[in-house]
Design a protein around this nucleic acid. Structure first.
Lengths: 93, 93
DNA sequence: TTATTTTGGTTTATATTATAAACTTGTTTA
DNA sequence: TAAACAAGTTTATAATATAAACCAAAATAA
């Protein structure tokens, strides 16, 4: 009847991150931070979870001499996002 | 950018309950239970929360001689549900 | 009748979560 | 060279969702 909602995506900040990433080739930590208006700590934790789930990849590099963490949605992540949207429709009628 | 999601509605079971209630005049506990496939305990708790938020009304009466708890969505609840749906659209693009 | 099961829930315990505060490491800027 | 800032990470806390255990009354079986 009501399909189960993927608990990894059913989180305000993680969903926002996925929403941003589904729209761009890649995004770094600070960009995600401004877009989502999240605190660094919260964002850091949620990025880790998305990464652990295989929904995004995370690359730590440098931009000039400043550290720069780049995130990219994976195919698996994109598919999970699509399914989540589909499942939600059932709830929103 | 990303609007805040109403934490009362951003819950799988509470959202399912609201979804059902937004479609019918009223529904009793057992109906909600079969529709949402929730456990009694979980459903009971979430109904209380929706009621405390003023999103639904709860009337405990009898059907024959069996107890019967009847839930009904309120105008406030309906409006919150609509706004939640609207807010979510931002996330789902 | 008396026992047992079922119905319709509520209360309580637990484990997970989301979140922000505090901290770290290195880089600019004054 | 000291102070402020950037880019994160780690840790502590409070809130949540959830199911397990429980309860009272009604229906059913013996």
């Amino acid at each position: 009847m009501f399909p189960k909602l993927d608990p990894i995506l059913h989180s305000e900040l993680r969903l926002a991150v996925m929403s941003v990433l589904s729209d761009v080739e890649s995004a770094d930590f600070t960009y995600l931070k401004t877009q989502t208006e999240a605190t660094s700590g919260n964002l850091s934790v949620q990025i880790d979870k998305l990464s652990a789930a295989g929904y995004i990849t995370v690359e730590k590099g440098f931009k000039g001499r400043m550290p720069c963490t780049t995130c990219k949605i994976t195919e698996k992540g994109l598919e999970a996002f699509r399914q989540y949207v589909e499942a939600l429709r059932t709830y929103l009628k």
